[in-house]
């Protein structure tokens, strides 16, 4: 019981702390680095939740590719620490934070009140749930969800073309080819 609780609290503290730093750091690059640490911590939470494959994919895709892209773009811009990082207006800011807090409150109360509605074992992780193998995920992905998978492939192709089209320089780097 304690063995499951200690890693959970350490990891969730780290996740929340670095998520907080992500949204409050005035320097965008610090934001990106903090977000990367958040992602890595989340990957370890996924490992702890018996989903090692998704945890590994989280490391490869989010921490290894998406966040590196963010950091690279920010470094290319060479932004300084922002003088005015947050949006203006005391009252509207208060309203924004308050409504977000209200949402969090609703979510938490909802979670706490619906404890008995879902038929799950609320013991420590892994009781009655075997560690999911990547084979099972693959079978599900290529049988039941194969259409969605193909559509996703098409979407990625579109996005790649679109991103190149949006950010392209006239003439381009390979203009002479």
């Amino acid at each position: 019981m304690l063995g499951a609780a200690i890693p959970f609290y350490i990891l969730s503290f780290l996740v929340l702390f670095f998520a907080y730093k992500t949204i409050t750091s005035p320097n965008p690059i610090h934001c990106a680095l903090h977000l990367a640490i958040t992602m890595i911590n989340l990957a370890f939470i996924f490992f702890g939740l018996n989903s090692p494959f998704i945890g590994g994919v989280q490391l490869v895709v989010y921490a290894g590719a998406v966040m590196v892209l963010f950091v690279m773009v920010l470094m290319l811009f060479d932004l300084k620490t922002e003088v005015r990082a947050f949006s203006r207006g005391l009252f509207s800011s208060f309203l924004k934070v308050a409504s977000s807090g209200f949402l969090a409150g609703i979510l938490i109360v909802g979670v706490l009140m619906s404890t008995d509605m879902l038929d799950v074992t609320s013991d420590s992780v892994g009781v009655g749930v075997k560690a999911t193998s990547s084979t099972d995920i693959a079978l599900l992905l290529f049988n039941q969800y194969v259409f969605a998978f193909e559509v996703l492939g098409l979407l990625l192709l579109l996005v790649a073309v679109g991103a190149v089209a949006v950010s392209r320089i006239p003439g381009g780097t390979h203009a002479n080819d």
Partner: peptide
């Protein structure tokens, strides 16, 4: 999932 883990961890080297 050794292979996925190793690929994921070594992709962090860019940081």
């Amino acid at each position: 999932i050794g292979i996925v883990f190793v690929l994921g961890v070594s992709s962090l080297a860019a940081y």
